[in-house]
Amino acid sequence: MISVYQVDNDDWRQPIIDLLEHQKLPDDPRHKVEIRRRAPRFIYYKGTLYARSFLETMAKMSWRNRLQTMYEAHSGVCGAHQSGPKLHDHVKRMGYYWPTMVQDCMDFAKKCDACQFNANFIHQPP
């Protein structure tokens, strides 16, 4: 069995992986400074990029499966239809990280049909 993983050219992780694995930086000076600044916050171990946290735990980078991860944390077996910030904390405790995680969790919770249908409504006139 052969498994092939193709990295997109627009993937934000690839320059960081190139720096951590091969010490190769991009040609653009502005992009080079940004990659050097961001790279110490990551670890590349056994073909997987992990994010370091203040507690020295490693969070697995999950860019492609973020919708499935948020669905499982929000309304799956372990979910309780939390709000956006609570969903963000839950996904982080599950061991996942991506750069736009906070905003993605807020948007996901706002678009949940069950949460919107059963939400508390204030029946007072404005």
Score class of each variant (00 low, 15 high):
residue 1 M to H: 09
residue 2 I to A: 08
residue 6 Q to P: 02
residue 6 Q to E: 14
residue 9 N to K: 12
residue 9 N to T: 10
residue 10 D to K: 10
residue 11 D to S: 09
residue 18 D to R: 11
residue 22 H to W: 07
residue 22 H to T: 12
residue 23 Q to D: 15
residue 23 Q to H: 14
residue 24 K to Q: 15
residue 26 P to R: 05
residue 26 P to V: 05
residue 27 D to L: 12
residue 30 R to N: 11
residue 32 K to A: 09
residue 32 K to N: 08
residue 35 I to T: 04
residue 36 R to T: 06
residue 38 R to L: 14
residue 40 P to M: 08
residue 42 F to M: 03
residue 45 Y to S: 04
residue 45 Y to M: 07
residue 48 T to R: 09
residue 51 A to E: 06
residue 51 A to V: 05
residue 53 S to G: 15
residue 54 F to A: 11
residue 54 F to H: 11
residue 57 T to D: 09
residue 58 M to T: 00
residue 58 M to R: 11
residue 59 A to Y: 08
residue 61 M to Y: 05
residue 62 S to R: 07
residue 63 W to K: 05
residue 64 R to F: 03
residue 66 R to V: 02
residue 67 L to V: 13
residue 70 M to Q: 02
residue 72 E to V: 07
residue 76 G to K: 03
residue 76 G to C: 01
residue 78 C to G: 06
residue 78 C to F: 06
residue 78 C to S: 10
residue 78 C to A: 07
residue 79 G to K: 03
residue 81 H to G: 05
residue 82 Q to F: 12
residue 83 S to V: 13
residue 85 P to W: 00
residue 87 L to Q: 00
residue 88 H to K: 08
residue 90 H to M: 10
residue 91 V to T: 13
residue 92 K to R: 12
residue 92 K to V: 11
residue 93 R to W: 04
residue 93 R to H: 12
residue 93 R to I: 07
residue 94 M to F: 08
residue 94 M to W: 05
residue 96 Y to H: 09
residue 96 Y to R: 06
residue 98 W to S: 03
residue 98 W to K: 03
residue 99 P to Q: 04
residue 99 P to G: 02
residue 101 M to I: 14
residue 102 V to Q: 08
residue 105 C to T: 07
residue 106 M to N: 11
residue 107 D to A: 12
residue 111 K to N: 15
residue 113 D to R: 09
residue 115 C to P: 02
residue 118 N to Y: 14
residue 122 I to M: 10
residue 125 P to K: 08
